[in-house]
Simulated assay, not measured.
Amino acid sequence: MKKALVKAVTVSLLWAPLAARAGDKECDYKRDWMSSACERVMRVVHDGTWDLYVTGYGWHIDGYSNRSELNPWSWGGGAGKHWTDANGNEDILFAFAFSDSHHNFEPIGGYARQWFTNPVMGGLQAGGGFFVGFTARADVAHYLPLPLALPIGSIRYRRASIMATFIPRLPGLNDGNVAFFWGRYEF
């Protein structure tokens, strides 16, 4: 576990120069979609509000012959920031770490975009969208950062949300599908 933490901190330090470059508010790229993406991220960085994340459960749905040996309790936590647009939809930057299916440290971080329904019953909303980012696992290339692009869904009541993603089976990488759940509190 200590080796994993050292590797995660090392990777984070290597990303620091890129984060410093992103902090200068320059989003002038030759492609409009890149400029738009940069502007969304910078808006979260500079104008967003803070979030607290608490991870909790990984449901190993099917394909696992050793399901009883796997860790469903994915305890961990982290922080992030979100910015809400005029329609109530969100851009989110996040980073958290948790105990994976094999009880190993797993960091994850990235950008998410969610669209929400109109509030009902005093503030209850459903949301859906995607996130893109990176994770690193002990059992996959010894903590080499791996890119991710996954769907997300959430149920939000005022400032508290229960969020989830679906991780599909990838031959050679994992044995089955996983639904991963975590909570978020918006400050």
Rank of each mutant, 00 (worst) to 15 (best):
H103T: 12
F94D: 03
A86H: 06
D85V: 09
G63S: 09
D51W: 04
G77C: 06
Y53A: 03
F96H: 01
I61R: 09
L70K: 05
L93F: 05
E69K: 11
H102Q: 13
D100T: 10
S74H: 13
G77D: 08
P72R: 01
S68C: 04
I61Q: 08
W75D: 02
N71R: 06
E69S: 13
H103N: 13
W83G: 00
D47P: 09
Y53R: 03
Y57L: 15
N89I: 09
A79H: 00
D47M: 10
F105R: 08
Y64R: 05
T84D: 04
S99Q: 11
V45F: 10
G80L: 06
E90R: 12
F105Y: 13
N66L: 08
G88T: 07
T49K: 15
G56K: 00
I61P: 00
L52P: 13
E90Q: 14
D51Y: 06
N104K: 11
D62E: 06
G56V: 03
Y64E: 03
D62V: 02
S99M: 12
G109N: 08
G58F: 01
F105Q: 01
E90N: 14
D100M: 03
P72C: 07
S101D: 10
N66I: 08
T84K: 10
A97R: 00
D100G: 09
L70V: 07
G80C: 09
G88F: 07
D100R: 05
S65E: 05
G80K: 00
N66F: 07
S99W: 04
N66P: 09
H60W: 01
F96Q: 00
G78S: 09
W59N: 13
T49N: 15
D91V: 07
D91W: 02
W83Y: 14
V45N: 12
D47K: 14
N104G: 04
L70R: 07
Y64Q: 03
W73V: 14
W75N: 06
L52M: 15
L52Y: 14
R67W: 04
T49L: 12
G56M: 02
I92Q: 02
F98G: 00
W59A: 15
